[in-house]
């Protein structure tokens, strides 16, 4: 090989290598290090005293962690379910030659451009019994009206769902709308000529064709749910008590304020594994089905 050819072959790899090295160290190296720490007796500072699975055993005995897991189950299920349902219905409605679609679509999607801290701040005071919804409805004459979920240990997690749905459902709508616009109108016409009612048409023909979008929406929403941190911090700060604690807030407080770094690292590993279980098969199938061609 001539040196020019060698250079032409090597240069692309050379250009890619800084990014690759950064990702290798800062993503995969860090994962390995956190994984190692989860098996050590690290407290306030990282330590290398190996303790095996002890941190994981402790983690799953902690009521605090179980609260976080339960909350994630409630939050994740409702968040994914409501966003998907709402996104689908709004997309189908918007797909009916709606006047003003160009105005409605961006209105539904703008929350996605906001920081969760902003969303949390807005909803925190909007849901506050003193000045928010409860007060507004009472001022309309319904003096008995009560809405104090955000202060209620049993209900506070649902306020996180409300704010998160507000932020993300427009995005899911946009995904479904893009899917609907990709469906061949002839298929729908044919089905209608066969006498299918609108509801039947959507249930039997259209919605099944949107399957890939359901999958994408699920993957995106699931990984966002597991990573949820900012919104809870801004909206309820994990409270009242620990009523809205999620794994992400648990990890942070155990690692950085309670000086239980080993347990904190173990919780981060569990979070990573959960997300990997959702994302890896998805990415694998996506990359395989379109082998390197077109995007």
């Amino acid at each position: 090989m001539t040196s020019a050819a060698w250079w032409r072959d090597t240069l692309p790899r050379l250009v890619l290598s800084p990014s690759f090295v950064l990702v290798l160290i800062f993503v995969y190296g860090f994962m390995a290090y956190s994984g190692w720490l989860s098996m050590t007796d690290s407290k306030m500072l990282p330590s290398n005293g190996f303790v095996g699975w002890e941190n994981y055993e402790r983690l799953f005995r902690l009521r605090h962690w179980n609260t976080a897991i339960n909350n994630l189950a409630i939050f994740g299920t409702l968040y994914i379910g409501i966003c998907t349902l709402l996104g689908l219905v709004l997309a189908i409605f918007l797909d009916q030659k709606i006047r003003g679609e160009g105005l409605i679509r961006p209105l539904m999607l703008y929350p996605m451009a906001l920081s969760f801290i902003v969303t949390g701040t807005a909803w925190k005071w909007f849901l506050d019994p003193g000045i928010g919804i409860e007060q507004i409805v009472q001022s309309w004459g319904f003096t008995e009206f009560e809405f104090r979920w955000i202060k209620d240990r049993d209900m506070a997690i649902y306020t996180v769902v409300i704010a998160a749905v507000w932020q993300s459902s427009g995005f899911v709508m946009a995904m479904f709308l893009a899917g609907l616009r990709g469906i061949d109108g002839e298929i729908l016409k044919a089905a209608q000529i066969d006498g299918a009612s609108n509801i039947k048409l959507y249930r039997r023909v259209v919605i099944p064709m949107l399957r890939p979008i359901f999958l994408s929406a699920f993957v995106v929403l699931a990984h966002m749910a597991i990573k949820s941190y900012d919104l809870v911090i801004a909206l309820t700060n994990g409270g009242p008590g620990r009523a809205t604690e999620l794994p992400a807030t648990f990890m942070y407080s155990y690692t950085f304020t309670r000086n239980q770094m080993g347990v904190g690292a173990a919780s981060a590993v569990i979070m990573l594994m959960t997300i990997a279980a959702v994302i890896v098969p998805y990415l694998y199938s996506e990359l395989r089905s379109k082998p390197g061609e077109r995007g």
Partner: peptide
């Protein structure tokens, strides 16, 4: 897609 909690301590 990684949860950034996994990189906080080493970072």
């Amino acid at each position: 897609f990684i949860p950034f909690q996994i990189v906080l301590i080493p970072m």
